[in-house]
Amino acid sequence: MSTDRRIVLFDLFGVVARHQRPGALEQMATLCGAPVDAFTDAYWASRPPYDAAQQTAAAYWTTVLRKLSRPVATDTIEQLRLADIDSWSRVDDRVVAYVQSLRDRAEVALLSNIPSDHADAFLAAQPWLQHLDHVAFSGKIKAAKPDPAAFHHCVTALRAAPADFLFVDDREENVRAAQALGMNAHLFTALHPLTAAIDAWLPPRAA
């Protein structure tokens, strides 16, 4: 059941923010003296519990280093943690401007899979996020997409109905999960198709 509200719920990475900086995984592999391919496998395989706040940063990096049979040193963990945060720090200024411009036509919120310490750094670097109607980071809400709990969090926090939302994400599994919950959804590929989809979904502008 819809309450006739219009809430555009954005993913972060791959939509508003850019994907991981090219060369970042190679840099982190060098920091711990591991082959790039092995490091990449350990980095991603160990990620879901970290994203969903089931592991601290220290526990995540300890897991990665042990999978690689590398020494678990506090200094190395901190170097890796900071390099990792920096690698996910870029935004697409055009999309940021568009997101902000929507706020006179709709409620605007964000739902991102991002560890808690990354979220803190991102909020500090991007103060415009504090002006959105709601911001949900997986490391803070303890649920990561495509887990339905992540979407339920936004529905509950905004006191809305699933049909009130247009969810925007660049990953098909997340789009399908939102649709299964009853949300409208758009698979992001570029800014122009996104603006067209949102214009079609929102009520016409007042004359």
Rank of each mutant, 00 (worst) to 15 (best):
W44I: 05
A197Q: 09
Q179F: 09
I77R: 02
V15P: 01
H192Q: 13
D147R: 06
R81Q: 15
A17H: 01
F188M: 06
S89H: 10
V15H: 00
H153A: 09
I114G: 00
A53M: 01
A157E: 13
T30D: 15
E107D: 14
D170Y: 07
A59I: 03
V96C: 11
D37L: 14
R105N: 10
D120P: 00
L132I: 05
A163D: 09
A45K: 13
C32F: 04
Q20M: 14
T189C: 04
A160D: 04
L181G: 04
I114Q: 13
A97I: 00
A119T: 02
F165I: 05
S89K: 05
I85W: 04
L80M: 15
L166Y: 06
P193N: 07
L68E: 08
R205F: 07
V64Q: 09
S46W: 02
V99G: 00
P148V: 11
P22T: 07
Q130V: 00
A83E: 13
R18N: 03
D37M: 12
Y98Q: 08
D75K: 08
R81S: 15
R18G: 01
V96D: 11
T156S: 14
F13L: 07
K142M: 10
A157R: 10
R5W: 06
D4L: 12
A59V: 06
P35G: 05
Q126K: 09
Y98A: 04
T76Y: 05
P115A: 12
P49I: 06
A59W: 07
S101T: 07
